[in-house]
Design a protein around this nucleic acid. Structure first.
Lengths: 242, 242
DNA sequence: GGGATGCTTCGGCGCAGACCGAAGGATCAC
DNA sequence: GTGATCCTTCGGTCTGCGCCGAAGCATCCC
C-alpha cells in the first residue's frame, strides 16, 4: 500500500478534539491567529502552538506571518472537503449527543461552509433552483443551466465560465444540519459572495452563522421563489444519506 | 457546534494505524472476516476484535454473522468517500515516504477503488471518454452524455437511468496514485462490473489490484481508443491537485 | 459426544502524546 | 531604550489507549 501510515497520520491529526475544534473553526474560510485558535479550542497558547505546527507541517493548514500575529487557514478546498465529509459521517452515525441550543438554531438556519452558503436557507435556495430547472444536480455532480446562469445574472451575480480548471465548478455538498444538499464549488462560492455584496446576507461576528437582512428576505423570495422565513419550519428527518 | 466531539471521535477512529489498515483493506467493497482483517492489519484476533467492535458501533462498518464467521464491510459509500478523501490528502501533503515496490506498481496500473476502477487504466479510459465527448466532467461533478451512453451500450454495459436517487450517479474521484480523476458513482460502478463481466479485467486474489486480460487490452483499445499497455509510461507529476 | 476453529471478553502492561508552567525570541508601541 | 503582546521551545507529569496472554462462548466437523 502506498502508505497506510500517511493515511492514519492524517486522520489522527483531525482526530484530536483540540485540533478538530481548530479545523472546524477555520471552516468558514477565514484565517485566524494562533491565539484565537487557542481560545476557540480551549487550551493555552503553548499547547495550541504545538498543534498548529503539526497541522501546518502535515499540509492541512497554511500559515502567514503578519507582524507578531500568525494567521492560519485551511490549506486547500480539499482539506475543507475532508472536514465536510467527516462532519457528515459523524452526524450520520452518532445519536444526537446533546440538546441543540439557540446558537445551533442560528447555524442551522444559515451559515457559511468554507466558501459557500449552508443551512436551511442554502438548502431551500438550492432545491428551488433544481425545481425550476436553473440547476441540475445528481448526487455528487451538478450543472448550472443556461436559465440558471441568467437567473443569477439578473440579480447581479456573474458566474465565471466553467472551464477545465481544477477547481470544482458546481457540486452538491451534504448539509450536516439538514441532511440534504446545498450548492458548493465555484457557483456556490459566487452565490455566497454575491448575496453578501447585495446586502441580502450579513456575516455575524465570531460565528459561522449568517443572518438574512430584510432586503434579503424580499430579494431571495423574488429571485428564487423561496421564503427564508419559511425555513423556521419543523425539523427534517432524513435518516440515511448518500 | 453540533459536535466537535463526534467529529474528532470519527476521525480518531480512522487515525489509528491498525484501524486504518482495516478500512483500506475494505476499500474494494468486499466483506472480510474478523480474522482476515486481523491478519491484514498485523495484529492478534483479540486486538482486531476490539477495533472492529468500535468501528461497527460508530457506524463506519457493518457486520454480518455467517456461521462462525463475521463478515465486515464499509457501512456506506459515504464512508468509502471519507477514506478516499483522506487518501488524497495524505498523498497530497506527505512527501513520498518510502520507495514504491512492484506490488505498488500493479496497484498503480489498475485496481478497484471501493466499487469502481482506479489507477492508470481508469484514468486513461476516463480521460479518453472526456476527450471524445462521451463524458463531461467538472471537477466534482459529471455527466454521461448520450454518446457516452451509446458507447457503453455498444460493449454491453447498460447504465441505469440517472434518476433523482440519493446515490451519486456520475462523479470524478481523485486517483491517489495518478493525482488525476477517474470515474466513480453509479456509472463508474457499472463500468467496473461490466468490464469484469466481459472478461476484460480480472480481480487478483488478496489484493485490490486488477489485471487487464489480453481480450481486455484489445477491447479497451477498440472501445475507448486507449491502450492499457501504454500506461506503463513515465510517472506523472502533478504536484498540487484540486 | 469430543475436538477444532473463529471470535469475544477480561486484565494488566507499556508507550505515545496531550497538557501546562516556565522561560526565551520576535514584533509592536512609546 | 522599556514594556507589552504574540508566539514558540523546553521539561516534566499524567492519562488514554493499543497491545497481548489467558480464558470463555459459539459454531462447525466428525
Amino acid at each position: 500500500m502506498a502508505s497506510t501510515a500517511a493515511f492514519a497520520a492524517t486522520a489522527a491529526l483531525a482526530g484530536d478534539p483540540t485540533r478538530a475544534a481548530m479545523l472546524l473553526a477555520l471552516m468558514d474560510g477565514r484565517a485566524l491567529t494562533a491565539g484565537e485558535l487557542a481560545s476557540v479550542a480551549g487550551v493555552t497558547p503553548q499547547t495550541a502552538s504545538g498543534h498548529l505546527a503539526r497541522l501546518v507541517e502535515a499540509g492541512l493548514l497554511v500559515v502567514e506571518a503578519q507582524g507578531r500575529h500568525r494567521y492560519h487557514r485551511l490549506a486547500s478546498p480539499l482539506v475543507a472537503r475532508m472536514v465536510e465529509t467527516l462532519i457528515s459521517i459523524a452526524g450520520e452515525t452518532q445519536a444526537p449527543p446533546v440538546r441543540v441550543g439557540p446558537r445551533d438554531a442560528a447555524l442551522r438556519h444559515a451559515r457559511t461552509c468554507y466558501d459557500h452558503l449552508a443551512g436551511r436557507v442554502a438548502v431551500g435556495i438550492t432545491e428551488r433552483m433544481v425545481a425550476t430547472g436553473a440547476l441540475v444536480l445528481g448526487d455528487d455532480g451538478g450543472e448550472l443551466t443556461g436559465s440558471g446562469q441568467q437567473l443569477l445574472l439578473r440579480i447581479g451575480i456573474d458566474v465565471p465560465a466553467p472551464g477545465r480548471g481544477r477547481r470544482a465548478f458546481c457540486r452538491p455538498c451534504l448539509d450536516w444540519s439538514e441532511r440534504r444538499f446545498h450548492l458548493a464549488g465555484v457557483v456556490g462560492s459566487a452565490l455566497l459572495d454575491g448575496l453578501l455584496a447585495l446586502g441580502w446576507l450579513r456575516r455575524t461576528a465570531g460565528s459561522r452563522a449568517v443572518t438574512v437582512t430584510p432586503a434579503g428576505e424580499q430579494g431571495v423570495r423574488g429571485a428564487f421563489g423561496f421564503d427564508p422565513r419559511a425555513s423556521a419550519g419543523p425539523e427534517t428527518s432524513l435518516r440515511r444519506g448518500a
